[in-house]
Design a protein around this nucleic acid. Structure first.
Lengths: 351, 351
DNA sequence: TTGAAAGCGATACCAT
DNA sequence: ATGGTATCGCTTTCAA
């Protein structure tokens, strides 16, 4: 096809009113519960609606009421094949369910991470009478002042830390890093290295340092890697070949670590790949714990021990807060949990 | 937050008209090119638009014109965590770009696979003045008559075969199965087994049989598996333990095959997992080729040789056909290509 | 409890 | 080339 029939001239509210023998207003009252309607009248209206297969025109409703009963989910992405963000699918799923539960539809849109593009999307949303925007921020820098200027409520998802004036939420990355690193240490490995972004202010980096310090072991080595599978693979090759160089903030390095905290599942999958290629065994030669709890950690080989981000809870909270009458500009931090699998040296894993 | 300012009272077309010193109509003419406008006038209008930051109200436009300039992407999913369809992300990405290129927004929605739910979504789309629907069908049965009744153009994505009266497209699964199986045979393996759904009419199953027949080798064994990672894992365990039973249409079985054509990457990832658990080496003990060309095949270990579905091309074609003035009810078949990696026994792979 | 009617903001037809 | 204006379908006062 494209299939499609000349459309049997859709019934309007007026048709319903006539058939039920009432005024237009009463139809509205009945359907929206905006005013009391006699039981008998309501019954006739409902029958007419049924008979005509009447569905209120949402465009008219939006025009009149200024609300399209729709939320937008905006996914800025730095790489070209958008929706590349691994969290996208998981968030989309729950956000849609949560929005629908509250009578809203969800409108999903990708964009480049460029501030002017993000702003342009916000403007488009406003023009479409959209009621609020959920932004999957990740590491995208957001120009909150400009976005606020559009006049749409919005909230940032997947954000690491509080920023003045922006509503946001995210997993407690630091605590997760502590949990993962500590677990590795409890296995008895003498030290734990870190693979992740080269950013000394990053909470996972900080958590790793803290856990090492708390255990009284030297932290290291630090191996810089992009948050991608190729980035992880490159880092893995450097480690396997004992070329891991000391990155910023590293305390020592240059020899292959016995255990590794990798800052994301994507990166860890790349590291695993590199290790396979070089014959480095996990966990026998190097143990690994990673971060995110995404599905790619589950079926990796060996299964990745990983700190799970509570995406569902975060998504539901995001919708609730976005729709709340009394809006806050807080940053909500969610706890996660460590999922144990084989890669850290634990005996078995469920899948 | 939720952030949001009291909204600086949005400018309407009337404000623009007044500021530019023209009538409402001229603003429309200028912006939409619906009628000739003097260059000087147009300039004044544009300046006013700029100055006021005017954005046409899309709800009003939709009400008046009957079109929201929006396409819907509907993803029926059988499992509860919706958006579980592995193609979802890839399609969403390209569909959105293609729609945007043509001035349409894309509205993404998940639903259960239940026919009445799908129908309900179509009705909702119609009420929202949506212009057309892209349905990611997969193996979802669609009640095309009922959907046509809604009066919305629609097209089914990811469909295996032509069905009367429905516009659809999909990869040539049979040809892909032939290519994958044949490649395995060319490696010199004496026979090639099949892991996939237990459905003798399935094109990949048929293609597998055909390729074996063409090479003059017995086809088998056939191992039934759900199109999921756990399904693949279970099948993999049966194979590794030499418990692979003869499924319907199988020609022989009961001993571990030397090579395997697996009908999807998801399934293959599960098989790989099972083989790792049992110490079956790929490709030394069993070679594997799979189907889809998704990103999970790329970083699996070993990298999966897989038949890539041309998702991008299909998505672009879907949008084009959906928007075409002269709608067809054809089924468009796309060729794919075999991506060689290590799992089939090829020497190396790029990643 | 019900009805009449005034818009919401844009489009497009009909004049001029 | 430009200006009036009816209209899209619905919500919501205001009166009755």
């Amino acid at each position: 096809m494209t299939n499609g029939t000349p459309a049997p001239r859709k019934a309007t509210r007026r048709d319903v009113a006539r058939l039920a023998g009432v005024s237009d207003a009463v139809v509205s009252y009945t359907l929206n519960g905006t005013a009391p309607v006699a039981a008998a009248t309501a019954e006739r209206v409902r029958a007419a609606v049924e008979q005509l297969g009447y569905r209120p025109n949402q465009a008219a409703r939006a025009l009149r009421s200024g609300s399209a009963d729709t939320l937008a989910f905006l996914v800025p992405s730095s790489s070209d094949p958008v929706f590349t963000n691994p969290f996208f699918g998981e968030y989309a799923s729950t956000l849609e369910a949560a929005a629908r539960d509250r009578g809203y539809a969800l409108y999903t849109t990708a964009t480049s991470f460029r501030p002017d593009e993000v702003l342009a999307r916000f403007r488009e949303f406003a023009a479409r009478q959209i009621d609020g925007v959920l932004v999957l921020a990740g590491d995208t820098p957001l120009d909150s002042a400009a976005l606020d200027g559009v006049g749409l409520p919005w909230i940032a998802l997947n954000v690491a830390s509080r920023e003045r004036g922006v509503a946001s939420l995210g997993t407690d990355l630091r605590a997760g890093a502590v949990a993962a690193t500590t677990h590795l240490l409890e296995h008895g490995y003498a030290s734990v290295g870190f693979v992740g972004q080269d950013d000394p202010t990053e909470p996972r980096y900080i958590g790793w340092l803290q856990a090492c310090a708390a255990a009284g072991v030297p932290a290291g080595p630090f191996v810089a890697a992009e948050v991608t599978r190729p980035g992880g693979r490159a880092a893995g090759h450097r480690i396997a070949d004992d070329r891991a160089r000391v990155g910023s903030g590293a305390h020592h390095g240059g020899h292959r670590p016995r255990a590794l905290f990798v800052a994301s599942d994507r990166t860890a999958v790349g590291v695993l790949r590199a290790f396979h290629e070089r014959g480095v065994r996990v966990p026998q030669d190097v143990a690994i714990a990673s971060f995110d709890g995404s599905s790619e950690a589950e079926y990796a080989w060996p299964g990745l021990t990983t700190f799970r981000q509570p995406v569902d809870e975060m998504a539901r909270s995001a919708v609730t807060r976005l729709l709340a009458a009394d809006r806050d500009h807080a940053h909500e931090l969610f706890p996660g949990e460590l999922v144990l699998r084989r890669s850290c040296g634990c005996p078995d894993d469920t899948v």
